[in-house]
Design a protein around this nucleic acid. Sequence first.
DNA 1: ACTGTCGGTTCGGTGACTGAACCTAATGGC
DNA 2: GCCATTAGGTTCAGTCACCGAACCGACAGT
Lengths: 181, 181
Amino acid sequence: MALGKDYAAQECSIARALEVVGERWTLLVIRDALYGVRRYNDFLVHLGIPRAVLANRLQALTAEGILEKRRYQESPPRDEYVVTDRGIALWPALRALGIWGREHLGGEPMRTFWHADCGTELSPYGACPTCGTLVAVQDIDMRPGPGLDPDPADPVSRALLGTRRLLQPVETEPGSAQRPV
Amino acid sequence: MALGKDYAAQECSIARALEVVGERWTLLVIRDALYGVRRYNDFLVHLGIPRAVLANRLQALTAEGILEKRRYQESPPRDEYVVTDRGIALWPALRALGIWGREHLGGEPMRTFWHADCGTELSPYGACPTCGTLVAVQDIDMRPGPGLDPDPADPVSRALLGTRRLLQPVETEPGSAQRPV
DNA sequence: ACTGTCGGTTCGGTGACTGAACCTAATGGC
DNA sequence: GCCATTAGGTTCAGTCACCGAACCGACAGT
């Protein structure tokens, strides 16, 4: 929360984690990064976040080593933001929040997560019931659940519709407007 | 986040969860409630949170069914806020955040969590390695870790020092000032 | 009557978030 | 050459949330 005052020097790992990822939008940016979103404009369109806030968050997350800014073309210079191991390590926390949201705020599951190697749906804690092992994030396939809008408006949501491997970069056709217009 | 604008009608359980518990202080209030804190003044002293914000959060969490306001004495009328099943269900998310904070922001563990029935320390995902089962929150003992200040200033932190069963109400001696003075 | 506790509410000041507009650099089409 | 468009920002005024301190009301104890 970048803290007007830091969380009172809380002697607590939870409070320290929230100092870094507790601000509005931050965890959603990381969620999108895990889903494969990498470009400024894709975050912008998918999240509906104010531009200044997005720029601020991307910079802060890069400074914290959760994202890595990487030049992917010169002329015109373009950078993408790729999630690092430190960011990938937030997956269990994001998943736990998602499970709580689905179970306690009602509604159908929006997305489901499967072990790519064996095709089994993951247990709530990220283990594969058939393999018995904890599944690494890069071995997880995401599939749309019954609660997901099958024909979303923005191009990033459309690109995320099919079965997708986590962390795999999202491809959006160029020419998708910067904003809902 | 109570949202100036809601998270853009995000089709995502994570976003919906963050709408409810994503505001500043909210998750820390729930953490304290799981540790056994129940009274307005104890939250106030332990968190160092502004009084108005605390009152706001307690009311919102009660409205969401995460805490339950319960009269524990008449004359003078006094209420306590007890965490409900819906709040207890947030434990995995809080624990995942705490583990990330400890592993990626450095430092010694502040608190450790043990299966009360068999005395084994819990795995990162809340299972008991010896029993193999997932341990319910009410069967978890919390013990101070090496990173915890052994002689904290506020009476609530002192009351939380020993080995404590989660959810068990914290007893603070009356007469502990309302504020760091 | 006076003091202290508990659980708030009120209020002025500050900082963060919002939405819209603007800017730069380069590219593509005509 | 000219204009529109794309990507990735910055700037700015307005609003809203948060902060800290002060105040309040009901009751207890002495």
